[in-house]
Computed example of a mutant assay.
Amino acid sequence: MANRIRGEVEAVLDGQRHVLCLTLGALAELEAAFGAEDLSALAARFGAGRLAARDAIRIIGAGLRGAGADIDDDAVAAMRAEGGAAGFARIVAHLLTATFGEAA
């Protein structure tokens, strides 16, 4: 079960319940992937409200790995979420809100 106080969220992917968490290591991974120089730049990028499918893959993958899953982004790209693209966007929004707060 996800612990929201620790920044964890739950998501159902491919019919299985997963916990996601953007740990410091996961955030460092996203900084490198998005070319952000620090956490403020990363939060500002996410706060802009624009999300590409590749962004969702990277964020969800980092969240899964941050929670301990051994999964790569290619496997995340092949996953399905209830609600399709909108379902993935909701997962990302919940994860970013749990990590950065409402402003993200």
Rank of each mutant, 00 (worst) to 15 (best):
L24F: 09
A32V: 09
A53K: 11
G49R: 07
A44Y: 15
L22M: 08
A44D: 15
G47M: 01
F34G: 01
G47E: 05
G49C: 03
G83W: 08
A75Y: 03
V76Y: 00
G61T: 11
D73E: 04
D72M: 11
A81S: 02
R45M: 10
E37S: 11
A89S: 10
E37W: 03
L30E: 05
A75L: 09
G66T: 05
A56L: 08
I60W: 00
M79L: 06
A81L: 09
L24G: 09
R50F: 15
D38T: 14
G68I: 11
E82R: 07
A41V: 15
I59S: 04
G35I: 07
I57V: 08
L51D: 07
G66F: 14
E37H: 13
L42A: 02
R50L: 15
A32L: 07
A28Y: 15
M79C: 00
A77I: 07
A28G: 01
A75I: 09
A28T: 15
G63Y: 14
T23C: 07
E29P: 09
L22K: 13
D72C: 00
D38F: 15
V19I: 12
D38Y: 15
F46H: 03
E82D: 13
R80S: 00
R65N: 14
F88V: 02
A89N: 06
V19P: 02
R45W: 15
T23V: 10
A52C: 07
V76L: 09
E31Q: 13
R50P: 08
F46S: 01
R90Q: 11
R58N: 13
F88W: 13
M79T: 03
A43Q: 06
R65K: 15
V76K: 05
I59V: 14
V76W: 04
G83I: 02
G49E: 04
A26N: 06
D74R: 12
C21N: 12
G87D: 05
R90W: 02
G25E: 06
R45C: 10
G84Q: 02
V76G: 01
A53V: 07
G35T: 13
D73L: 08
R58S: 09
I71S: 03
L30W: 06
C21W: 14
A86E: 07
A56M: 11
A78T: 12
R90K: 10
G84C: 01
R58L: 11
G47Y: 09
I71V: 13
L22I: 07
F46P: 06
R80V: 07
A85D: 00
A62W: 13
D55H: 12
L42V: 14
A78N: 11
L22S: 13
G63V: 09
R80Y: 14
L39Y: 15
D55T: 09
V19R: 01
A32W: 05
L51S: 04
E37Q: 12
A41D: 12
R90T: 04
L42T: 08
